[in-house]
């Protein structure tokens, strides 16, 4: 059976997730992700004609909250937990490239 996911795809996904995998880890992830996809592929054996896709396992819909202002966090407390802050804002490394 052909692999459901190539080593190249796994490397691509790892890069998108900012994961730095070495060769052994890539091999292992490729095998494990393939097994997961095999498992999911079992669904293909079922007759799903007329069955709508499942958006959520819970039989719930329209869970809302009222548009009423609640508590906010204290800024000093929030920023104290950050690695670095400046001017009431979170200080982060300069970001290369453009924002999405």
């Amino acid at each position: 059976m052909p692999a459901r996911i190539s080593r190249q795809d796994v490397a691509h996904v790892a890069r998108l997730a900012l994961l730095d995998l070495d060769d052994d880890e890539l091999d292992r992830a490729t095998e494990q992700l393939g097994a997961v996809l095999d498992h999911v592929a079992d669904i293909e054996a079922l007759d799903l004609e007329g069955v709508p896709p499942t958006a959520h396992p819970l039989p719930l819909r329209n869970v809302f909250r009222a548009d009423v202002v609640g508590l906010v966090l204290d800024r000093d407390e929030v920023l104290a937990a950050a690695p670095s802050a400046e001017d009431g804002r979170f200080r982060v490394p300069a970001v290369l490239g453009e924002e999405p």
């Binding site: 202002v69 609640g70 508590l71 906010v72 800024r75 804002r89 979170f90």
Partner: peptide
């Protein structure tokens, strides 16, 4: 979430 949606507030004061 219930944090205010308000323009022009001091930075990081409308956060939860």
């Amino acid at each position: 979430s219930a944090a205010p949606n308000r323009f022009g507030a001091a930075p990081n004061t409308n956060v939860d």
